[in-house]
Design a protein around this nucleic acid. Structure first.
Length: 496
RNA sequence: GGUCCUUUGGCCGAGUGGCUAGGCAAAGCUCUGCAAAAGCUUCUACAGCGGUUCGAAUCCGCUAGGGACCUCCA
């Protein structure tokens, strides 16, 4: 089997993945800021890294997956707003800050569950790690790379850049950053324009505030990830993931902070997912074009022609490579909806097929199936190419359907190949891609009732009593259950 | 303005120097009491202009369009 290769944003090339500690993988992914509701764009990294998590686990690694909850509130550019996003909204909604944060955390968890993403191993909150953040800032000050001004602490980027590669991850040129002349309030506190806050002095109206060696304040934007990643994954860990838009300044600053504090670069492989766009433009709050996840699921947004099942969205995301932009569109979503249905139906049929020797093995076909199946691993190993895995699956869908219709014999492929196909389909669709049925779980009672109706209908059809047989099918259709006659007099049903 | 990315058939999207990805839509056919599915077939595209090459959607250059980051952002 080929080795896993991942595209490392830091080196800008695919590299063979080798964990620091054999058999184990430490992965940190930037989580949501729970000051508002998640939108479609937010679904992408969490689905993407869920598949990474699942695949690494599938390969046998013991993965510690850390994904934070940013509940301390990031600020707008220093001083532009006297209070951070969370505290502002909290006042508008007349809620306690933590109450608001809890509400959106719950909503986020609910949405993630809809997407069938696995829970991270650790989901630390920023507010729960103020002590660690303060500790880290103290280390950086001690090392001489941060300075205090009026109760705030800033990281000295210029000094850091003199001996380190600040800007390498995001392709930034340090001189450009230093020379940019943008007029912003609070700027005069910093020694340099490129410096960033580690700790901010809290204005009296700022609700979220903590005691620190520098007075009452709150942590800077980037320090939480550095502190929590270090605490749970160590000073150097394998994978750090997040959206591409976080490369600068967030991840760049994380590297700087952690490198000074821990004396080594924190991350081995940086993995960044691309954006979801709408009419070619990034979906985001500042563009006013975001569709929240609850709207996606309910269809309650003028842009949406209908509601989309979470699995359809997950499938939609997996049909493209994670480093490409993905353009939202009703037509595209509906294509995914139908495609997923077809894939899933074939998968259900495959599970029910039995191998019986009724014909000689067709070598050519057998080899084709073996190839398509074995490529699943190859594609995943090539920087998680879920789109290609799905393409291969669809090539097998036609064959599975032909077997179901008895147009070709199941034994036209060997027993081993058939078993391999059944096994790998399950492993890939369910365990690795994390897809599941879009219909409600079928209860035993429902199964029994449906079997009864099918028996009655078969009987009616046998007597050419089409009035009865059509009535059964039509009535079921009204309930959203479609009954289909299969070749050979069998019947199958699906819930719409 | 700076840095970087991108441009694939009606739509969404893979993609590597040579071998029609795949999905959806559309058309035809087959199967079928009728439906619905399903199967088969058709539609063979790579922004434009040059260049490199035996050969380029894939490499290089120019032109045009789109986008991201530089400020919170998945």
């Amino acid at each position: 089997m080929s080795e896993l290769k991942v595209y490392n944003s830091y080196s800008r090339q695919k590299e063979v993945f080798t964990p620091i500690t054999p058999g184990h993988v430490g992965m940190y992914v930037c989580g949501p800021t729970v000051s508002g509701e998640s939108h479609l764009g937010h679904a992408r990294p969490y689905v993407t890294f869920d598949v990474v998590f699942r695949y690494l686990s599938h390969l046998g690694y013991k993965v510690r997956y850390v994904r934070n909850i940013t509940d301390a509130g990031h600020f707008e550019e220093e001083g532009r707003e006297a209070e951070d996003k969370i505290s502002k909204k909290a006042m508008l909604e007349r809620l306690e800050p933590m109450e608001l944060v809890q509400k959106y955390t719950n909503l986020f968890h609910w949405a993630m569950e809809q997407f069938n993403t696995l829970r991270p191993s650790i989901e630390p909150t920023a507010t729960g790690h103020i002590v660690e953040q303060i500790g880290m800032i103290q280390e950086i000050i001690k090392a001489g790379y941060a300075y205090e001004v009026n109760g705030s602490v800033y990281f000295d980027v210029k000094k850091y850049a003199a001996s380190h590669d600040y800007g390498k991850l995001s392709g930034r040129v340090i001189d450009d950053l230093l020379e940019t002349t943008r007029d912003l309030d609070g700027q005069e506190e910093k020694r340099d324009r490129a410096d960033f806050a580690l700790w901010k002095n809290a204005a009296p109206e700022h609700i979220m505030r903590w005691q620190s060696p520098w007075g009452v304040g709150f942590p800077g934007w980037h320090i939480e990830c550095s502190a929590m990643a270090t605490k749970y994954l160590g000073s150097k860990f394998d994978i750090h993931g997040g959206g591409m838009d976080l490369m600068f300044p967030h991840h760049e600053s994380e590297i700087a902070q952690s490198t000074i504090c821990n004396h080594e670069a924190p991350v081995r492989y940086w993995i960044h997912n691309n954006m979801i766009t709408i009419n070619g433009k990034k979906m985001g709050k500042s563009y006013g074009n975001q569709i929240t996840l609850t709207q996606m699921f309910s269809g309650d947004n003028p842009i949406l022609e209908k509601a989309y099942h979470p699995m359809v969205i997950r499938f939609f995301i997996l049909q493209t490579h994670y480093r490409s932009t993905l353009d939202f569109g009703n037509e595209a979503l509906q294509a995914s909806e139908k495609g997923l249905r077809r894939l899933w139906d074939a998968y259900e049929h495959l599970k029910k097929l039995n191998w019986e020797e009724t014909s000689p093995v067709n070598d050519e076909q057998d080899k084709k199936v073996v190839r398509l199946i074995s490529e699943f691993d190859e594609f995943m190993n090539d920087d998680f190419s879920t789109a290609k895995v799905l393409a291969n699956m669809f090539e097998l869908v036609s064959m599975i359907n032909s077997m179901k219709d008895k147009a070709i014999a199941v034994s036209s492929i060997s027993k081993e190949t058939f078993d391999l196909m059944q096994k790998q389909f399950t492993v890939y669709i369910e365990d690795i891609l994390g897809l599941k049925s879009v219909t409600e779980a079928d209860s035993n009672k429902l199964q029994g009732i449906m079997q009864l109706l099918i028996d009655i209908r078969k009987d009616a059809k046998g007597k050419k009593d089409f009035v009865t047989s059509d009535m059964i099918r039509n009535q079921l259709a009204k309930l959203g259950i479609s009954l289909k006659d299969e070749k050979g007099g069998e019947m199958s049903w699906t819930i719409e």
